[in-house]
Design a protein around this nucleic acid. Structure first.
Length: 469
RNA sequence: GUGGAUGUAGCUCAGUUGGUUAGAGCGCCGGAUUGUGGUUCCGGAGGUCGCCGGUUCAAGCCCGGUCUUCCACCCCA
């Protein structure tokens, strides 16, 4: 080929085999979502740029894919900016992008959901529980497990402050990964506790810097975390004051009294701790190891868990696989108290969880956890011996399909070796052979592709023959 | 966005200090086997060496640029 076509950086094609596996993941997640009372929702791939900007932090805004205005996009650029450019002056990239583009690809599913809720507030029954399984786009630099187009599977409850929602989401998460047969750790923390720690440090305005540094503790170690905090303008005194955080070890039950004592002067921290207590008390007993579905996941308190998205205000969750080599998170979420506030609807607290289907795929593939029977859909292939035989097969084909057995007839009367190879390649377990002889006698020769055994059965017995093995 | 690697047949990769016609395994196609795949044997097709430019008598190999993939940051699903 002169010029092999290609696809944009960080995007992928999905072959039939991959799609079957992906659909298995989506289907499993969707079934659990529905079981917990969530209803489906879809929103457009594009949102107004203004809907998305300012919701994900500075870093997030940079990663939003903007869509160039159609027509002559240049026309929309203001005289002021044009003059600046003509003079060779630097124009703030965000400003220029904003004038060339007023649409953008969605960065996640939560913000479009908040927009939807505000826009349709009068039509919705609250608390509103929706799930959404759609692709999102990020202009990130791709790596393993990181793509520019990937799917999120979200479940959110909006319009309820009850902590029972957090409990339900934790249980839902455990159930999804149990259904996928994957051992995971569900880590929980609360932004209020983190805010309280910042308060106690004496520099409450530095929460975000503090928290993003603390988040790296298990990765880069205490010394480097402190170094990063210093570089962000956090004083040595503040760092000393938050030192107890680095000493924390053990289970929630062990850490709780220490935290309550240490953060006694912070009302917000106390509230966060109370929330965590409720979640652990209510959901926690589901996670003692045992043989039923909840035995596959463990629930852990992680005081260093922060999560980057700006809009979280209460509980935060993150899930990591406990097996396989992928160390990044495969699922995350939390409570956001005022996401709809930005769109003009106050007092609408929500909490949600997002499953990263693409990363779950990579983990399941590495561990060989996809069910085997996903490989093939067709159960029987009718070999084609020529026009007469093929027409005869059509009748049987309909009967087989009526019995809800997936079947196909090879469309061309090519040599047998080729037809058998086709069945083999597609993983079709049976081949029905009806040549001149079989036709005359009203029988079908059925070959089991796995064992290689062949059996002649009456046409009427074909269904029962296919039902076995 | 910063730093670093990588790219040779459909796939995984060899290819010496720059030197004739660029190789292997797997896969694909054909045959041994005109009603039998997966095993075996024999044969065959398939490459403007990512792309553009430069150095040179001569470039897959050296230099510059660009794109892709990957790795570390940053951040995240």
């Amino acid at each position: 080929m002169a010029n092999t076509p290609s696809i944009p950086k960080g995007t992928r094609d999905f072959s039939p085999v991959e799609m079957l596996r992906r659909k298995y993941i989506f289907g499993t997640i969707e079934k659990v979502f529905q079981k917990y009372g969530f209803l489906p929702l879809e929103t457009p791939a594009m949102e107004n740029l203004s809907t998305l900007t300012g919701k994900y932090g500075e870093e997030g805004d940079r990663l939003i894919f903007k869509v160039l205005n159609s027509g002559d996009a240049w026309k929309g650029v203001s005289e002021e900016v044009k003059e600046q450019l003509a003079k060779g002056e630097e124009v703030h990239p965000g400003k220029l992008a904003g004038e060339l583009s007023d649409k953008a690809l969605r960065y996640d599913l939560t913000v479009p959901f908040a927009r939807y809720v505000v826009q349709h507030r009068n039509e919705l029954a609250f608390p509103f529980k929706r799930y959404q399984i759609q692709p999102v786009w990020r202009a990130d630099r791709p790596q393993k497990g990181r793509y520019r187009e990937f799917y999120q599977c979200d479940a959110d409850v909006i319009g309820s402050k009850s902590l029972l929602n957090e409990v339900e989401l934790v249980e839902l998460t455990a159930e999804v990964f149990a259904a996928l047969d994957l051992q995971v750790v569900i880590k929980v923390n609360n932004r209020k506790v983190l805010s309280g720690i910042a308060e106690i440090s004496g520099q409450p305005e530095k929460v975000v810097d503090m928290v993003t540094a603390i988040d790296k503790l298990d990765k880069i170690g205490r010394a480097k975390v402190e170094e990063e905090m210093r570089s962000k303008g956090i004083t040595d005194e503040a760092i000393t004051r938050i030192a107890p955080l680095f000493e924390l070890k053990g289970t929630w039950a062990e850490q709780r009294p220490l935290l309550e004592n240490w953060l006694a002067d912070s009302a917000i921290a106390q509230e966060g701790l109370k929330n965590l207590s409720m979640v652990f008390k209510t959901a926690g007993d589901r996670f003692v190891p045992r043989d039923d579905v909840h035995g596959r996941a463990t629930l852990e308190f992680d005081p260093t868990l922060a999560r980057g998205l700006d809009y979280y205000t209460g509980a935060i969750f993150e899930v990591k696989a406990n097996e396989g080599s992928l160390q990044s998170s495969i699922c995350g979420g939390g409570r956001y108290d005022d996401l709809t506030g930005i769109f003009g609807l106050k007092d609408m607290s929500g909490v949600g969880i997002s499953f990263g289907a693409d990363r779950i795929y990579d983990v399941l593939l590495e561990l060989g956890k996809f069910p085997e029977e996903l490989g093939s859909s067709t159960r029987v292939l009718f070999a084609n011996f020529g026009e007469n035989e093929a027409l005869h097969c059509l009748k049987l084909l309909r009967q087989v399909r009526e019995a809800a057995i997936a079947a196909e007839l090879y469309p061309d009367a090519v040599k047998m070796a080729k037809q058998f190879k086709y069945a083999d390649d597609k993983g079709i377990p049976f081949v029905a052979i009806i040549g001149e002889n079989e036709m005359k006698q009203g029988i079908v020769t059925v070959k089991d592709m796995k064992t290689g055994e062949q059996k002649a059965v009456k046409e009427g017995e074909l269904l029962t023959q296919l039902g076995q093995g």
